[in-house]
């Protein structure tokens, strides 16, 4: 649901230190709160205020970094207070003008499931009394919502995974999780953009580069995008990986 005068009652503003203000749109993770975050974030991206450095949308919050020295204020009023009243005025205006973010993009993420690419596919299957093929079918069936990017460059926190394929984290994290690994931890599924240690159950690997510093937008996915996984063969994986890394 878009930002409306009614749901603005739930909005809270608070500081994160002397250079950031947090706009909290609700207490829990859900699509309605996410939509308001998307709308607000899209507005800020289009109309940044003087002194704004950048913004970080998350599950329930948008954190805005700013330079207090560049926020024009009167004597006796702090940059935080000034900004806080600015946002309090801005939110109802966004609601009144029915400003909404552009429609989300759906991005297809090809995955080579199982084998050396997904060493924990068997575990996830056994844990849920399913066959590996059934796990793949369930994993590729849904569209996943990217709530936010964090933890590592380009790492998407996604919602929408079926509980039928949920699995606990590994007891001992792997020292190295290869770039592009697709994993499951609890009720979440994720993709490792860079090689890193990790405790997720790995079910496959994508040839796509989720993080590429030379791309105009270094992260392939953005908060608000929809992700659809598709199953590809090892051969196709190798081909697409070569194309990706060659370009």
């Amino acid at each position: 649901m878009a930002i409306t005068p009614e749901n603005l009652q739930a909005v809270k503003l608070y500081p994160l230190g002397d250079k950031a203000i947090v706009v909290e749109f609700g207490g829990e993770i859900n699509r309605s709160v996410h939509q308001r975050i998307r709308d607000f974030s899209a507005y800020l991206a289009q109309y940044p205020f003087d002194g704004m450095i950048e913004q970080v949308p998350a599950f329930t919050t948008v954190t805005i970094y700013y330079n207090p020295a560049l926020i024009p204020t009167q004597k006796g009023i702090s940059a935080y207070d000034k900004l806080s009243s600015y946002i309090q005025q801005l939110l109802p205006n966004i609601a009144d003008a029915h400003i909404t973010a552009p429609a989300p993009q759906t991005i297809e993420v090809p995955v080579c499931y199982g084998g050396a690419y997904g060493p924990d596919l068997e575990f996830v299957a056994k844990h849920n009394s399913l066959s590996p093929e059934e796990v793949i079918a369930i994993h590729t069936e849904q569209e996943y919502l990217v709530y936010m990017i964090g933890f590592a460059p380009g790492f998407p926190y996604m919602g929408g995974m079926s509980e039928k394929i949920a699995a606990p984290r590994r007891d001992a994290p792997r020292a190295v999780t290869p770039q592009g690994s697709v994993g499951i931890a609890g009720k979440q599924t994720g993709i490792y953009p860079i090689e890193t240690p990790g405790g997720w159950q790995l079910i496959g690997q994508t040839p796509l580069l989720l993080f590429h510093p030379k791309r105009e937008s270094p992260s392939l996915l953005h908060a608000g995008d929809m992700v659809r996984f598709t199953s590809i063969s090892e051969e196709e994986y190798k081909q697409r990986k070569e194309q990706q890394h060659g370009s």
Binding site: E54, A152, G154, F211, P218, S219
Partner: peptide, 10 residues
Amino acid sequence: RYGFQKDGVI
């Protein structure tokens, strides 16, 4: 490096 924290870039 500013402007890319929304992409998870520190």
